[in-house]
Amino acid sequence: MYFQPKNLDEALEIKAKLGADGTLLAGGTDLVVGIRKGRTQVSNFIDLSKVAELGELQEQDGFLRIGAATVHRRLESCAHKALADAAATVGGPQIRNLGTVGGQIGTASPAGDVSVALIALNAEVELLSAARGSRRLPLADIFTGPGKTSIADDELIRAVWVPHGRRSEFYKIGKRDAVAISVVMAAASIGPSNDVAIGIGCVAPTPLRCRRAEDHINSHGLDGATINDAAQIVREDVSPIDDHRAGAAYRREMAGTLTKRLLWRLLHSKGG
């Protein structure tokens, strides 16, 4: 069956009724590919293209509130550098005009460039259900495995909240310079009180927040020595796999290398 709700309430109602059997369709850039490859079976589509509320992008309470159906193309010019850079590396313009931030979070790919940037920006996700209304939690906490999140079957992603005031950087290694799935990618940010946050992709079953490395820097300060330590901690904490895109050893090493590179950039641009 194919459902095309006209507004948020209708969408929530249908989602509540169908639960896990209702598959949300936004940009389709992952879902439609999955169907074509026979990777995804869909019994019921819930097409969100007519739910205008989900496309809102606004400033609210010191956050950038990004409606779940905001397409990557719109984020390319946002003020958070890591997010803008990550959004700009997703596919080509044609994909960025379709793919949405909510879709990227919902698919929970460890190679999700935008998810990793958001994690490193301390973003929160707002979930909504007909029965329980809305809830907000740290984005990093909802990923439970490849393609798996703790979002309930009757919930949908309403928005992502990105706090202001953090400088951030993003770096991606792919197999070519555009429209490439990441081999390893990382993002890092630094807040007004010099606290850092680090996110890494493709090195664990989920987009990874490197808390231990962050704690090390946050308790010892950001300098050349702690950056090296943080890179080493990251190498220890990641759990990459060998696959046809890269070997585990390379990914592990690069997780550290990119951490170092991004933290140096944050250090150098400090106050600048």
């Binding site: 369709l25 940009g27 389709g28 850039t29 439609v32 590919v33 074509r36 490859k37 589509f45 097409d47 193309r73 596919g91 080509g92 313009p93 044609q94 994909i95 005009n97 379709l98 429209v179």
Partner: peptide, 23 residues
């Protein structure tokens, strides 16, 4: 037909999209 090649690019409300990924 997987959004990787751009051969099916059309304009949807004036913006380029890959027609293969639009339901």
């Amino acid at each position: 037909l997987e959004g990787e090649c751009g051969s099916c690019t059309v304009l949807l409300d004036g913006k380029p999209v890959t027609a293969c990924l639009v339901m």
